[in-house]
Design a protein around this nucleic acid. Structure first.
Lengths: 234, 234
DNA sequence: TGTATTTTTTTTGTCGACACAAATTTTCGC
DNA sequence: GCGAAAATTTGTGTCGACAAAAAAAATACA
């Protein structure tokens, strides 16, 4: 059981129920606290979070819309599987969104966007320094999410966030081997991206994002290739 | 009240309730039978579709996830507005998805994909011949959806479908002036795209999709520019 | 008559209960 | 003992009801 699950049973503000369940489940899914394929029992969840099944079901519908769970009709909904066979479609979309959001950030960013982006980058650098792989994964996501926000295109942003989440789940699988690559390189690449965004150099931002994406995709590929266990099983 | 609303009150299969409500509402929203900004009364809807509020609420959650309705906490959910001020973000994403899906279709399509695509194209050509603007909008969507399916990338596909739906809603606003452009041109462009996909000529497919998207964006821009009524109001 | 405050109404968010479907176990025939 | 049919159990899909929150109406007051 995760930490959030053991929260105070009663006294939650009206209307926050669905959001609460959504957040708990989302975190547990992305942290792999709930393994892919795990069936989600509504009644059990209702008891655990001490609320009725109605808000739980609505949260599940929302998660299903984002592809984080799969609903089997008249049967339990399960945590979405990681489709190793079609990872290339994920990498393809991820790379394109890296590029597009960084491009548009260079074009459309406003003054305070850079403040936020730099703050996220500082957190990422801190995580690298601390050799904290889990924090690196989380802060890296937030860094790119901040860039996506500065890009000011909600369509790209929502897809990108979805992809970053999926990536977070994937990296979580291999986080233990996340340190021995060369994460310092990512810090430098991030700095370059920030500089090109600030200079509004669209083409350079694009190129850097492309390289950066290739780096990350390559690293994930290596981590998977090194691990010949049960790729198909999941 | 739309046609679907007046369906047989009782006797629907178990588990199909949410899907049914979702389909009804989605159609009415995209057809502008429900105008943007219209509040959706759950009780009223429940009576109209003769079912309880529970499946209705779940359908609304799903629609909210796709951005077709907006949920105001403790207040009624309303049909999503059309954001004329940020249409450029829509056009940008739409153009990119036109390109990417057509590219990937040229790369990844399989034999029977072309059969489906050609069938959709035939329906589109028929609509043009019949001067049926509404059918043109609908069949054009299905044509590009078929290409997106052949592209075999669910991430792009889901975003593209969302954009096509949003576009359907937008075009529906101006469908009356959809004839007097030159829709015959679109038929030819579609044919060229099919040919380049079949030839697996990725670059040509990309270029054609780009042109095609520019055409459509331009047409929508013209339709909006010609109409100086209540752009801001909606 | 206009404005602030209280009351009423409307509508959402949540709950507990029941019905139905699928999975599981038990029973029965051989 | 083994396989098929029946019964039980488990868990989802839907319902009607209630409580809280917001909006609307009514009232009080200047």
């Amino acid at each position: 059981m995760s930490e959030a699950a053991t929260r105070k049973p009663a006294e939650r503000k009206r209307g926050s129920g669905v959001q609460f369940v959504y957040n708990v489940l989302r975190d547990e899914i992305l942290d792999l606290a709930l393994a892919p394929g795990t069936p989600i029992d509504e009644i059990q969840l209702a008891q655990r979070l001490s609320m009725s099944r109605t808000p739980i079901r609505e949260a599940l519908v929302r998660l299903a819309g984002e592809g984080l769970v799969t609903t089997l009709p008249n049967r339990s909904t399960v945590v979405a599987n990681i489709d190793f066979l079609n990872l290339h479609t994920f990498f393809d979309a991820l790379t394109l969104m890296y590029r597009v959001t960084t491009r548009l950030a260079a074009l459309n960013h406003q003054a305070d966007d850079l403040v936020t982006i730099r703050a996220r980058q500082a957190e990422f650098a801190k995580a690298v320094e601390d050799q904290d792989a889990l924090a690196m994964i989380a802060t890296n996501r937030e860094f790119h999410a901040a860039i996506a926000a500065a890009a000011r295109n909600p369509y790209y942003e929502s897809l990108f966030l979805r992809l970053l989440d999926e990536g977070r789940r994937l990296l979580r699988l291999y986080y233990s081997s996340f340190n021995d690559q060369l994460p310092q390189r990512y810090v430098v690449e991030h700095e370059d991206m920030i500089a090109s965004i600030e200079a509004r150099d669209v083409e350079k931002a694009d190129a850097l994002a492309n390289e950066h994406a290739d780096q990350i995709v390559e690293q994930i590929r290596n981590m998977i290739a090194r691990d010949h266990r049960q790729k198909i099983a999941l």
